[in-house]
Amino acid sequence: MPLIYAFVARGTTVLAEYTPYSGNFNTVAIECLQKLANPEPKFTIACDRHTFNFLVANGFTYLVVADEAYGRQIPFAFLERVRDEFEEKYAEKARTAAALSMDRTFGPRLKSHMEYCMDHPEEISKIAAVQKKVNEVKDVMVENIEKVLERGEKIELLVDKTDDLRNQAEQFQKKGRQLRNKMWWQNCRMKLIVLFAILLLAVVIFLLVCFTGGKNCTK
């Protein structure tokens, strides 16, 4: 019995389930579900030669219990098939559905996907392998795009810094010209003051020489 039990849950509320076997698999699976805290998107719990395979996406949890010898590829391929159909056709209704209220509508779909995966293991394995490669390529592309965007941000930052430096240089040149003009006027004013002082001193000396002691240089 490769695939044994499957359910779809919203939070800790199981909406639909299916199993062709008897046993306490559903009890153990629900206990695992209730203990989950911030689960990874995909993870597996091994227990008593069985694997409890979980797929978490968009607020829903998909589970399939499988024989441990069956590996993880086909169980997760099954979960991805279930997720794709459930999100496309049942997700809106499922957001407010009560516990096990979707057994009648989606339980048969769990059965159909389970039987197909068990009847076509080679096909499912090939599809899973191709999907894995597609996901790897997608991850590489996303990483490259992020690097390009990051590089673009760095270039934009460099351009902004260059603009800032150019503006600072222009302001420095403007202040330099203003300072040169100010120094030139101060220099001119100082020269005029010195020249005026020399002329004034010359006039004073002339007056002292010409008009002291009864002298009059103008006669």
Rank of each mutant, 00 (worst) to 15 (best):
V14Q: 04
C117D: 03
G214L: 01
K132C: 00
I74W: 02
E31S: 15
Q73V: 14
L192I: 08
V134C: 03
G11D: 10
T212A: 04
T105C: 04
L79W: 04
N24D: 13
L192G: 04
E31D: 15
G214K: 06
T27S: 07
V8N: 08
D67P: 00
E68V: 14
H113P: 01
Q168E: 10
K89C: 04
Y90H: 10
H120L: 00
L179S: 05
T44A: 03
I145M: 07
F196M: 12
V140W: 04
E88P: 03
K42S: 03
F60D: 02
E17C: 12
F196T: 13
F52M: 06
I124N: 01
R166G: 00
A202E: 09
G176E: 09
R10W: 01
D164K: 14
I4C: 05
I205V: 12
A37F: 12
A29E: 10
K174V: 00
A57M: 02
E68A: 15
E80R: 15
W185Y: 09
K132H: 07
R177Q: 10
S22C: 02
E31Y: 05
E122R: 14
D139R: 14
L79K: 09
C32H: 15
R104P: 00
A128D: 08
V134Y: 14
K147F: 00
K35Q: 13
K42T: 11
N167L: 11
Q178P: 05
A57W: 03
F196L: 15
A128R: 08
K35G: 11
P121G: 05
F52C: 06
R189W: 01
L15E: 05
K138Q: 14
E122D: 12
S101D: 02
V203G: 03
E80H: 14
K42R: 12
C217S: 04
M118C: 05
E156N: 15
G107L: 02
R177K: 07
V65A: 08
A6T: 09
C32S: 13
L179T: 13
C210W: 10
T12S: 15
N167G: 07
K154A: 08
L15F: 08
S22T: 12
N216Y: 07
T44C: 06
T212C: 06
Q131K: 14
Y116K: 08
E68T: 10
T13R: 15
C188M: 08
T96K: 08
K147I: 01
A97S: 12
C32A: 08
V159R: 14
K219G: 02
N38Y: 02
Y70F: 14
Y62Q: 12
V56K: 09
W184H: 11
M183D: 03
W185K: 13
V134T: 11
V65W: 05
E17I: 03
R72Y: 01
V209L: 11
A9C: 06
D119F: 06
L199N: 10
A69Q: 10
P20C: 05
N58M: 13
L100T: 06
F52V: 03
F7T: 03
T13F: 06
K219P: 01
V65L: 10
Y18F: 12
I4V: 10
M1D: 07
A202T: 04
K89H: 11
E146Q: 15
Y90V: 01
E143K: 13
V159N: 13
E156T: 14
L33D: 09
R104T: 12
I193P: 00
N53C: 13
Q168N: 12
